[in-house]
């Protein structure tokens, strides 16, 4: 239950950082609901919920990483790895719940490897996760022989249908947001992102925090992978290829500061919804695909400018 306690914990944050993203989302969705009949069909709304849920879960993990002043480029590859581990085990007859759990473990392990490489000798996150983006994708390709895992149990496929991914995003995002607002790890994450040195001096172990954060990003990618495989009815090595840019864009649009120390999980979820809604709207309005980048890129610039302006106002107060 996401009750009053959490609402209270999130409200002061929402009143500031997430406001631009939320306003854009509300305006866009309301306008589209009114002017575009195709937008408001139940089937289209279900697809939006599916897409936004899957992207949003990855954005939650990414937001945590970026708050620590890191970045995780390997999320799309970890997603495919988890989905293929789960899918291949299901095709071999393992009960879907157990197979899904194994898929999530694969995601966590992949994330931990990222975290360990980053904390070991302080390798830059962008370098490590660029390498594992290629590594995990290549590993999944070689290990599966590019084969599709597309005979999946019907009960498993239900977790990707309709609004289930969106509900899952609210649950995952809610837990992570609560952890950031109230938990010890959350405080440590903000501390490490703000200043690793100050964090260490005040007794926060930055390496342990970072490893956990990348593991959580791997877990989020894993959850998204299961939902995506279920939604597509197919787990394959090339799932979510190139999605890392959408995920990072979602967190930036949601007001997460790329240089770390500040950000909001709620904002990252709004950012994911904005990307999905905009892309859907452009498609429904018949805009040629070549022009999509202009709009998404424009929104990112707008988000960056708004965030800068918001900070200036904040520091003046």
């Amino acid at each position: 239950m996401l009750g009053a306690v959490e609402a209270q914990a999130l409200l002061p944050l929402a009143a500031r950082r997430e406001l631009p993203a939320l306003s854009l989302l509300v305006v866009a969705v309301t306008t589209l609901l009114i002017v575009n009949p195709a937008f408001r069909t139940p089937d289209n709304l279900a697809v939006l919920a599916q897409d936004a849920g899957i992207l949003g879960i990855m954005a939650c993990g990414q937001a945590l990483v970026i708050i620590t002043a890191g970045i995780d480029l390997s999320v799309g590859s970890m997603l495919a790895l988890s989905a293929c581990v789960a899918g291949s085990l299901m095709m071999r007859g393992m009960p879907w719940l157990v197979a899904s759990l194994c898929g999530l473990v694969a995601g966590v392990v992949a994330g931990l490897v990222n975290g360990s490489l980053i904390t070991y000798r302080r390798l830059p996150p962008i370098l490590v996760t660029l390498a594992t983006l290629l590594l995990y994708r290549g590993l999944t390709n070689v290990a599966t022989g590019a084969a599709p895992y597309n005979i999946l149990p019907e009960t498993f496929k239900m977790i990707g249908k309709g609004t289930a991914p969106l509900v899952m995003m609210v649950a995952v995002g809610g837990l992570i947001a609560l952890m950031v607002a109230r938990g010890r790890l959350g405080r440590h994450i903000l501390a490490v992102g703000g200043s690793p040195l100050a964090a260490r001096l005040s007794g926060v172990p930055p390496d342990a925090v970072l490893r956990r954060v990348y593991a959580i990003s791997g877990l989020c990618a894993g959850i998204a992978g299961l939902l995506l495989a279920a939604a597509n009815g197919n787990a394959q090595w090339n799932l979510a290829d190139g999605w890392e840019l959408d995920v990072i864009a979602a967190t930036v649009i949601g007001g997460v500061r790329l240089t770390g120390g500040e950000g909001s999980i709620l904002g990252a979820m709004f950012g994911a919804m904005i990307i999905v809604v905009l892309r859907n709207a452009l498609f429904l309005l018949g805009v040629p695909v070549e022009q999509y980048g202009l709009v998404t890129g424009g929104v990112i610039v707008l988000a960056a400018l708004t965030e800068q302006w918001r900070r200036r106002v904040e520091s003046r107060q």
């Binding site: 195709a38 069909t41 089937d43 197919n234 394959q236 290829d241 859907n280 429904l284």
Partner: peptide, 21 residues
């Protein structure tokens, strides 16, 4: 316009659904 889905399974599926809306 024609659908260009970047060879992405998910986009291929969701864009087909959106096209039918």
């Amino acid at each position: 316009p024609y659908i260009y889905n970047d060879d992405d399974n998910q986009k291929a599926r969701t864009m087909a659904i959106a096209a039918l809306q």
